[in-house]
Design a protein around this nucleic acid. Structure first.
Length: 550
RNA sequence: GACCCCGUAGCUCAAUUGGAUAGAGCAACAGCCUUCUAAGCUGUAGGUUGCGCGUUCGAUUCGCGCCGGGGUCACCA
């Protein structure tokens, strides 16, 4: 519908001799009284023309060539808005196209031929996934789904590090818990991982190895503990992600950057370009060249690289692997590292504009009205797995997507549990199930009219306000997808689908679908099917189920 | 101290990137099932958008200064 008006208004502007270089923007007004779509082009033009905006609007409206069967009203309002109202038949006519596209309605070819990588979760294998990782999994996977919907070739990637101090601590913690199974006086390392999951790993270790590790040399035993714990935790992590319907294409190990010499290459290249130098026994990256407030150490005086170096090397590999767009999804705690990585990428000669960083704020968990402090070290933290146990995968995914990523997300466990029936996700799924039920009823036993070929449906019979309102909202689906694509704010999808469900419930309440008037009944069944199509397409992107009955 | 995010109805959050009279869901109150799913619908009430300046036709949105909450500032990841 926007496209339709864009053509009409551009033509009018051309007639008037106004430059059409500006991109026309049509918006859906907040108030229904202001029509279906509105444009502020007259006000924008007025500024440069130094004319009265309402006068400019008048000229444009005068030059417009609109067919009365498509547009019922054009109005100049307020300071100079031009408001358009479509005829009901113009709207409902498009339902046929929607139905013909079916499961593909809302898809586009905007990303066709482009490779895009979405990196998310990327938790190191030192413990179970937290609730915060859950938000990241939901956001990342939903964006990835949406990008696929736009035609991109999407790679879902998980970056992890299984080396270094944290892994040594994991090994020591596991080892200590294991020994404690035989001798409970054995001490636990002071800053070890306190969580019960370490006990589970130790238990599993005993099941597999018996007491054999006790007799081994400690260093050897620790080495074994490390890889055992890592493997154990990764299986858990993958299992939980699978419960949420998230599947990664690539697990990228930071260690491989070392073994393949990529780390050394980056240092060399930066040195060659004069962007790295030695000082105080360390290697520094000239981040100030790229606007940072101070230079950064990339190799410590101990010879060990800081996390920045592999991060930069990793991003360089992303470019080398030929991705056209690179999406990084990080928690707010990583915000400070981003400028350094982007500077590093620029330093190596790549276009940092291709890196799209999505930062999401934290999740705070409420339990019994109290905030749960989550720390991997301390024993008290709720895992993603437990959260799914309590509220189910659909609710978890939906809740994490529902809020703007830049907002802190409050997740009240008690509420989510108690409210499992009042849950917003059920509201949407219920609409879907309700339609499925209507369609079953209509097709069953020949009592009601059957839904025949879309082509024969007379959508112009839909003249009730509730019908037209619903149809209009359904047709906004592609716009919603594109909007999310342009701003990476996935919460618009649940919000939009909520509007769809609300419009449907209203329609359902006011009008019976299966009635004696066969032609009208067909049109309403078509409207129902169109609604079901939009809902299930939206659910597919959100990664939640579309129940046929509830 | 510097930088980032947030501050909107009693609570949790929206607001199409600067648009017209700031909207939903819970919670409260009042209604609606002999019918294709009441996990639904309708109505009432609830606001100085943290505070103060500024930018302009127009500000919840942009700029500056405060106040409050969270986060980040290492040769930690």
């Amino acid at each position: 519908m926007k496209k339709f008006l864009t053509e009409k208004v551009s033509a009018a502007l051309a007639t008037l001799g106004y430059r059409d270089g500006m991109t026309l923007v049509f918006e859906k007004p907040k108030l229904q009284a202001h029509g279906d779509l509105t444009t502020n082009v007259a006000m924008l033009l007025a500024k440069s023309l130094k004319k009265n905006p309402r006068a400019v609007a008048q000229e444009i409206v005068g030059a417009l060539k609109l067919e009365p069967e498509n547009v019922s009203k054009v109005e100049i309002a307020g300071p100079g808005f031009i408001n358009f109202t479509f005829t009901g038949s113009f709207v409902t006519r498009q339902l046929g196209t929607l139905l013909a596209q079916g499961a593909a309605f809302g898809k586009s070819t905007l990303g066709a031929g482009k490779k895009i990588q979405v990196e998310f979760v990327s938790a190191n294998p030192t413990g179970p996934l937290s609730v915060g990782h859950g938000r990241q999994a939901a956001v990342g996977d939903t964006l990835a789904n949406l990008l696929q919907w736009m035609g991109y070739a999407v790679t879902r990637e998980y970056y992890y590090n299984n080396a270094g101090r944290q892994m040594r601590m994991l090994a020591e913690s596991t080892y200590a818990r294991y020994i404690q199974l035989f001798d409970d006086s054995h001490p636990f390392p002071e800053d070890g991982y306190q969580g019960d999951y370490i006990r589970d790993i130790a238990e599993s270790l005993r099941t597999q190895k018996g007491g054999a590790l006790r007799k081994q040399d400690k260093e050897q035993a620790l080495e074994f503990c490390k890889s055992f714990a890592e493997q154990f935790l990764f299986e858990e992590i993958k299992k939980v992600l699978a419960r949420m319907g998230v599947k990664f294409d690539v697990f990228y190990n930071e260690d491989s950057l070392y073994s393949s010499g990529k780390i050394q290459e980056v240092i060399q290249e930066l040195r060659t370009k004069g962007l790295a130098y030695d000082q105080d026994g360390a290697v520094w990256f000239k981040a100030t060249t790229f606007g940072a407030e101070k230079d950064r150490v990339i190799v410590k005086s101990t010879g060990e690289p800081t996390y920045r170096l592999p991060d930069i090397a990793y991003h360089r590999e992303k470019f080398r692997r030929g991705f056209d767009v690179i999406v990084d999804i990080f928690g707010a705690d990583h915000i400070a590292t981003i400028p350094d990585v982007l500077a590093g990428v620029k330093a190596l000669g790549y276009d940092s504009e291709k890196v799209k960083v999505v930062i999401h704020q934290f999740v705070t968990l409420l339990k019994d009205g109290q905030q749960v402090k989550m720390s991997k070290r301390a024993a008290n933290f709720v895992t993603l797995d437990e959260l799914i146990d309590e509220v189910g995968s659909d609710a978890v995914r939906f809740f994490f997507i529902m809020r703007s990523i830049s907002s802190h997300l409050e997740f009240d466990l008690n509420l989510a549990k108690e409210q499992s029936e009042n849950n917003p996700v059920y509201y949407l799924q219920y609409a879907h199930a309700r339609i499925a039920s209507i369609l079953r009823f209509a097709e069953g036993e020949g009592s009601g009219p059957k839904l025949e070929g879309f082509a024969s449906i007379k959508f112009e019979l839909l003249r009730e306000q509730a019908e037209i309102d619903l149809a209009k909202i359904l047709l906004e689906f592609p716009d919603t997808i594109e909007r999310i694509h342009s701003n990476f704010e996935p919460h618009h999808l649940p919000n939009y689908l909520n509007d769809v469900a609300a419009a449907f419930h209203r329609f359902y309440h006011d009008h019976r679908v299966v009635i004696d008037d066969k032609a009208l009944s067909q049109a309403r069944l078509g409207l129902c099917l169109a609604t079901k199509t939009v809902l299930s397409n939206g659910f597919a992107i959100l990664g939640i189920s579309a129940p046929e009955r509830m």
